[in-house]
Nucleic acid binder design. Structure first.
Length: 606
DNA sequence: TTAGGGTTAG
């Protein structure tokens, strides 16, 4: 069947869903009936008993026999047992090395797997396709591009570029390292492909924020050759829909998920909850979530984060309580969501109590990301000194510090704390992070005290360093069309009408207790910075003006520079779109630029 | 005897 569109592909899938499900059931029963060993035998005690037998018969120096045991312990995540057996092997072969490497990845220590690979390369044992796949997998987990490229080179050297599994793992590795073009080159070079390689490539696009490209690739996926999309692929497609903010595609994908019988699948449900939250339909999030019989930590976290986006911090806290009552253990990301929710709903005391309890009650040690949320929380309510002290007390790597000090910079700018903003900017410049914002901030700080020479000097330094400020923009999809809004764009012939509406909305917002204002956000009227702030204000203020937020002052609904769109903005933009000219409607959204960190912006579109 | 794809934050 010829498929020409995403919709076509999904409709085809829906039509064949029943046949496919029947097939799956048959396969499942046949697998169960013909299974040689019941799964219960594959546990630690059975491994231990084999271990004892090998020990008694002095076979622990026999490579093949011991490999079985290493592999079994590795799969059971009993890595210390596997390691001891390996260390005692007089002649470990490629299987011994690969099994142990895979074992270390399985217990969340991929760096040890790569270290073992290095040791193996220095020994007389040569890697095979299994070893290189495992090594590429370790690089994926670590997002280690440098080592990943080395593994790719070894794939070429050992003549394994034609191996389907090896190449799929390379596609995945490049995708996880955010080198999506490289992933595509490997994908295109593959003469053999299957559903896994296609899923890897679709996922690479979706996870790099290139949702449109992911969906385009999905259009090309040929069901008749590779079979119907499975739950892996559908989860990625749903993720691609949220990444592109495409509600229309998301709903169609949801239809396919239901008909394939995956709607209560934990992982897919998490992706659906996330998609509806990002596309502005929180009611749907709840519907999807409540259909899951026993939600794991993933859907709970998606819901907590979704509620946080809508300023429903109390709901996020209730969900945390609910999951704990049901015996679901929150993880580090759950707490990020909770702290984010507290920060955006002004629940500072709750947030601080949660931070305190993370380690004590749940055994999760807060890291730089959690502290960044707390700095954000304190910064939003103007407790800049506390936020600054906290930021200073945390030891961070430059990448982690970019977010931490960038957050502090935004908060100090918002509250007019020039001295803290200057400290934050200096940290960022010294660490070579977020240079444009830091330079502009420092320049503004000098300008504020009349030091124009230094203010100008910093601008010149910024130019010399090749640092440019991205132009802020927002976009929203309505009826399958994408509407773009640029900061400070004066080309709209009815801009006065639009600005009048914004003014009116701002007035309404003030009545609701909003204390901020343009003067509080921008110290000196600097073109680039002013543009960015105005855009962020548009979305935030519009959302607040519609009275959809529970605690307006702290709710931020930034849609600038990313694709997270809230329901309130959606409504607001619907109204605005009625008064702006058609030239603001953009049909081709394939030219999105993407930042390395996964956030997404559109530049130079016009 | 050893290998690949999906979800949650900012």
């Amino acid at each position: 069947m010829k498929k020409t569109s995403f919709t076509g592909n999904l409709l085809f899938a829906l039509k064949n869903a029943r046949r496919w499900r029947q097939n799956q059931l048959t396969k499942f029963h046949s697998k169960t009936l013909h299974a040689r060993k019941p799964p219960e035998s594959n546990d630690f005690y059975s491994a231990f008993s084999i271990h004892t037998r090998l020990l008694k018969s002095s076979l622990l120096t026999h490579t093949t026999a011991t490999n079985h045991l290493i592999n079994r312990y590795a799969k059971l995540q009993e890595i210390e047992h596997a390691r001891r057996l390996f260390d005692e092997l007089p002649e470990p072969n490629v299987v011994s090395w690969t099994s142990l490497m895979a074992g270390y990845i399985g217990v969340g220590r991929p760096e040890v797997a790569l270290w073992l690979y290095g040791r193996m390369r220095r020994s007389a044992v040569l890697p095979n396709e299994f070893t290189l796949t495992t090594a590429a997998n370790a690089c994926s987990v670590l997002a280690d591009l440098r080592v990943g490229r080395g593994i790719h080179a070894h794939v070429e050297v050992f003549g394994l570029r034609g191996n389907l599994v090896v190449c799929s793992s390379l596609v995945d590795m490049y995708g996880k390292c955010n080198e999506v073009d490289e992933a595509r080159r490997v994908f295109d070079s593959m003469s053999n492909k299957n559903i896994v390689s296609w899923t890897s490539m679709i996922t690479a696009y979706a996870q790099s924020g290139k949702g449109k490209e992911a969906l385009h690739l999905f259009w090309e996926f040929d069901y008749s050759r590779f079979g119907f999309p499975n739950h892996f692929m559908l989860a990625s497609v749903v993720n691609a829909c949220s990444s592109s903010g495409s509600l229309v595609s998301g709903r169609i994908a949801h239809g396919a998920v239901i008909r394939y019988g995956y709607d209560t699948n934990d992982v897919i449900a998490s992706a659906l909850v996330d998609m509806y939250a990002k596309c502005g339909y929180f009611n749907y999030c709840e519907k999807v979530f409540r259909r899951i019989e026993n939600p794991s930590v993933f859907p709970y976290t998606s819901m907590i984060v979704g509620a946080a986006k809508y300023g429903l911090g109390m709901l996020s806290l209730e969900l945390l309580e609910e999951m704990i009552d049901r015996g679901v253990k929150p993880n580090d990301v759950t707490f990020l969501g909770i702290l984010h929710a507290c920060s955006h709903s002004g629940l500072v005391d709750d947030g601080l109590a949660i931070l305190e309890s993370m380690d004590k009650k749940y055994g999760i040690i807060p890291d730089a990301r959690h502290y960044t949320c707390v700095v954000d929380m304190l910064g939003r309510i103007g407790q800049l000194d506390k936020a600054y002290e906290l930021a200073k007390s945390i030891q961070v790597r430059p990448e982690e510090g970019a977010l931490l000090w960038g957050t502090l910079l935004s908060a100090s700018r918002l509250h007019g704390r020039v001295e803290i903003a200057t400290e934050a900017s200096n940290w960022l410049i010294k660490s070579n992070q977020q240079l444009s914002g830091a330079y502009i901030m420092l320049s503004n700080a000098h300008a504020m005290v009349g030091d124009w020479k230094n203010a100008h000097g910093l601008r010149v330094r910024m130019k010399h360093a090749g640092v440019h400020k991205a132009r802020g923009c927002s976009w929203i999809e309505i009826n399958n069309l994408t509407y773009m809004f640029y900061a400070g764009d004066l080309r709209c012939p009815r801009r006065n009408e639009l600005l009048g509406l914004l003014k009116e909305l701002e007035g309404k917002m003030k009545l609701k207790g909003y204390m901020g204002g343009i003067e509080g956000l921008v110290f000196v009227e600097v073109e680039e910075e002013g543009q960015e702030e105005i855009v962020s204000l548009h979305s935030e203020r519009l959302a607040l003006a519609f009275g959809l937020m529970s605690t307006p002052k702290w709710v931020t609904m930034r849609i600038m520079k990313n694709l997270r769109i809230c329901g309130a903005c959606h409504e607001a933009f619907k109204i605005i779109s009625e008064i702006v000219e058609r030239e603001f409607i953009v049909r081709d959204v394939n030219r999105f630029h993407h930042f390395k960190n996964g956030s997404c912006a559109c530049r130079d579109f016009w």
